Simulated scan of single mutants.
Amino acid sequence: MDAATSGAGAERLSGWADGRMGGWAAFTTTIRKTQGLRGGAEFLPWLLDGASEGTQANVLGMLPPPVRFLYHWIWAPKYYRTVGTIT
């Protein structure tokens, strides 16, 4: 279990979600500033690994076309070559 899914990490994530730390808009801004495109290249495939096709379509539909292109043609293939897939 890592920090994002254990005690303090889970508390921080729920703090973002419920608005105590500024809500998801603030979370998005912080992640963009601290992680940039490279962070998205790792986070997005991890986030969508094992998600239903509908969930994947909904999440990817929120992103601009250039990011969807990167996800489909670069990020996801690299992720699955590296870690495999969760069944």
Score class of each variant (00 low, 15 high):
36 G>V: 13
21 M>W: 00
68 R>I: 10
78 K>G: 02
33 K>D: 14
50 G>R: 06
65 P>D: 12
85 T>C: 04
52 S>M: 11
20 R>M: 02
61 G>T: 02
32 R>I: 06
78 K>Q: 06
7 G>S: 10
23 G>V: 04
37 L>K: 11
21 M>G: 08
24 W>Y: 15
77 P>F: 04
23 G>N: 12
63 L>Q: 02
35 Q>A: 15
45 P>R: 02
53 E>G: 07
47 L>M: 14
65 P>I: 10
36 G>R: 12
4 A>P: 04
49 D>I: 03
26 A>Y: 02
17 A>T: 09
65 P>H: 11
74 I>W: 09
68 R>W: 11
57 A>Q: 10
83 V>K: 02
2 D>P: 12
7 G>V: 11
31 I>R: 08
75 W>N: 00
14 S>E: 12
67 V>M: 07
69 F>S: 10
26 A>T: 04
11 E>N: 10
56 Q>Y: 07
49 D>E: 05
77 P>W: 10
65 P>E: 13
57 A>G: 05
68 R>V: 07
10 A>P: 09
50 G>P: 01
38 R>G: 11
77 P>Y: 01
25 A>V: 14
30 T>Y: 02
21 M>Y: 11
58 N>I: 12
36 G>M: 11
64 P>L: 03
23 G>T: 06
60 L>W: 01
75 W>E: 04
86 I>V: 13
7 G>R: 08
16 W>Y: 10
28 T>M: 05
16 W>E: 04
83 V>Y: 04
4 A>N: 04
27 F>S: 09
77 P>Q: 07
32 R>K: 13
54 G>H: 07
55 T>D: 13
55 T>W: 09
57 A>K: 14
12 R>S: 00
61 G>R: 11
31 I>L: 12
80 Y>L: 00
38 R>H: 14
35 Q>P: 07
69 F>T: 15
86 I>T: 09
41 A>R: 06
20 R>I: 05
55 T>L: 12
32 R>F: 08
49 D>M: 03
72 H>T: 08
43 F>K: 00
49 D>F: 03
70 L>E: 12
39 G>L: 08
63 L>E: 10
3 A>Y: 06
7 G>W: 09
2 D>E: 15
74 I>N: 05
43 F>R: 02
37 L>R: 15
84 G>C: 00
83 V>D: 13
5 T>I: 11
63 L>T: 07
6 S>K: 14
4 A>I: 04
21 M>P: 00
23 G>F: 14
3 A>R: 12
18 D>F: 14
36 G>D: 07
50 G>T: 10
86 I>E: 09
35 Q>Y: 07
5 T>D: 10
62 M>I: 15
26 A>S: 08
23 G>S: 15
73 W>I: 04
83 V>N: 15
66 P>D: 11
2 D>A: 15
14 S>A: 05
27 F>Q: 14
12 R>K: 04
34 T>F: 01
79 Y>C: 05
48 L>G: 03
49 D>C: 06
40 G>S: 07
59 V>F: 05
56 Q>H: 12
38 R>V: 10
24 W>L: 03
57 A>P: 01
56 Q>G: 13
65 P>A: 07
4 A>G: 13
85 T>Q: 08
68 R>S: 12
73 W>H: 14
27 F>E: 02
30 T>N: 14
